[in-house]
Design a protein around this nucleic acid. Sequence first.
DNA 1: CGCTTTTGACCCGCGC
DNA 2: GCGCGGGTCAAAAGCG
Length: 309
Amino acid sequence: MESTGMEFSSLSLDLSVGPLRSSPSSMRGSVKEEPNKSPIKDEVEVLRAELNRMSEENERLTEMLQSMCASYSSLQSQLIELMNESNWEKGSAASASASASPVRKRKSESLDTNSAHMINNTPNSMINFVRHQTEPASSSDNSLKHLKVDSRPNISKVYVRTNASDSSLIVKDGYQWRKYGQKVTRDNPCPRAYFRCAFAPACQVKKKVQRSAEDQSILVATYEGEHTHGQPTSRPEANGANNGSSSTALPPIQVAPAKKKPRQGDEPPEIQWRLVQQMASSLTKDPEFTAALASAISGKMLELSPSRS
DNA sequence: CGCTTTTGACCCGCGC
DNA sequence: GCGCGGGTCAAAAGCG
């Protein structure tokens, strides 16, 4: 993936366009130095200027976010292409071994060919993203099994890296879930938790969360179905990160139905704009992200101004 | 007191 | 038909 560096360098270039934000307190101080204005007027002016700066900054940040999204989607498509290429190469061998092994594979295991994502849940890290597209012709035992998978609701998997010591089965995806069951399954000593969407009673989306048997620091969330309601990220209670089953942060990053191949470039501009806004609202709620962004911007500012000692 | 979570029991599909 | 295992139900417990 040599292009990754290129993409990120363009990102950092965009950061250099970032706002030179002066702190409100310093602004206030500079205005107060003018002797012939009343304090109230000063205050109004300061607030107005601050508001203007804020909105300009907001616009710039939105632009930056858009470029980030563009880079992200291009990276994503490159990754998918690369994975498809490698899958194509491995396809014949994999399908051969699959057909040689005992065919007894229960339905949950057959979901592995559906879409999957990796989210790093630790606050200090950015999102890792891995998607396994449905392999078009790799499974040779297609006939019946394949039909069964297709008849199921949209299924996707999200991998969330958590602290290994954290025993909770909570995946922050922006939706509100109600737990209705927990079970220890045969192939994994860690219990699997079953959740229903609690945002709307009519919403039939279900979620299963289980720690990976190989790496217990990874939570595997399996989503079934599609939400029949809008994004809940604007809801105030979705902002609390420690609300038991309800969680926030990142909405499932394009929890992709397995049958479609979602590519952001194919989406109409208004959907892209909504995605950008969702990402913006999610990211700006994350203090870690804003802190990281601020340090990146200030670092870039220092880089660009060598006159300072 | 009401809502949520827990957990054992039950249901159902699948393979033998 | 039987057993196994995943998924769901619902009463009890927990919590604010």
